[in-house]
Design a protein around this nucleic acid. Structure first.
Length: 270
DNA sequence: AAGGATTCCTGTTGGC
DNA sequence: TGCCAACAGGAATCCT
């Protein structure tokens, strides 16, 4: 499940092969993604040079002179650069044939991902209201504290809200709350500045460690080079319900919050 | 208006 | 062993 580290790993993997390359041909095999792939996407991209591959939150942008393609990997999407004679696989929904005998292939079994076009990517409705990047200076405990005042929502929902901070999906929310010793159901507005400093640091640590290790890799996610990431091995609570807490030995508890698996230590997290 | 519930989808898993 | 329901989750959107 691509979370921010996986998306950044993907960007780093494809950028060297894409930047400066001309798009020779665009093949849309299945336009039924989260939103329909624009019918004029081939006409918009063909003949143009990919100037840069950028990431913002979990969105990737292919920047061209006339605008940008917005790509989201959704739940099960992946982008790979391969030689252009490699046979298409099932769920290879979008392909950009490049000028270096390579192709950029978008594969997405569950089709929660998207390919969109924008001429003003910073002002695109999906992008403009996003919160700060978790590894940027703008994201810190003071920011979390200020935004959370009077909020009744549980802190786990709060940090997974893209208006608060981007890139914190279910797995990393569980991990960060454990590291910070905060109970996932605690009301966001009832947490001190001190504890938010700790939480911001935990989010930062969790995500940067995962980026270094190449992403979490659960089930069907593979990096752009086709190799799995190794972060899954260092998960402390996610997927470990019933196992002893690494801090105190208490059995980790699992509950459902907003229909999402939530694992925590009932003793260490308050 | 905030916050919870629903929705999209298919490969994998678990129970009988 | 085989089949099928349950589950997984990003995030927009709908609903209360």
């Amino acid at each position: 499940m691509p979370e921010l580290p996986e998306v950044e790993t993907t960007r780093q993997g494809i950028a060297p092969h894409c930047e400066g390359q001309t798009v020779r041909k665009v093949i849309v095999r299945n336009p039924s993604l989260r939103w329909p792939v624009p019918g004029d996407l081939p006409a918009l991209l063909e003949g143009q040079v990919i100037r840069a591959v950028e990431r913002r939150a979990k969105y990737l942008f292919l920047h061209f002179d006339t605008g940008s393609a917005i790509v989201h990997l959704g739940m099960s999407g992946s982008l790979r650069v391969i030689t252009d004679d490699t046979p298409a696989m099932t769920h290879d929904h979008v392909e950009l044939v490049l000028g270096n005998h390579r192709s950029l292939r978008f594969n997405d079994p569950r089709r929660f991902g998207c390919w969109l076009w924008t001429t003003e990517w910073r002002h695109h409705p999906l992008i403009s209201a996003l919160g700060p990047e978790p590894l940027s200076e703008a994201f810190n405990g003071a920011w979390l504290f200020r935004l959370s005042r009077n909020k009744q929502a549980p802190v786990k929902s709060f940090i997974m809200d893209n208006h608060v901070v981007v890139g914190v999906g279910n797995i990393y929310a569980n991990e960060a709350l454990f590291k910070a010793g905060i109970h996932p159901k605690r009301k966001a507005g009832r947490i001190s500045l001190d504890r938010y400093h700790k939480l911001a640091e935990a989010i930062r640590e969790t995500l940067s460690a995962a980026i270094l290790m190449g992403g979490t890799t659960l089930r069907d996610f593979v990096n752009s080079d086709g190799k799995p990431g190794y972060f899954a091995q260092s998960l402390l609570v996610y997927g470990k319900a019933g196992l002893p807490c690494t801090g105190c030995g208490t059995r980790l508890k699992e509950i459902r919050m907003n229909n999402r698996s939530t694992v925590y230590c009932p003793r260490c997290q308050r």
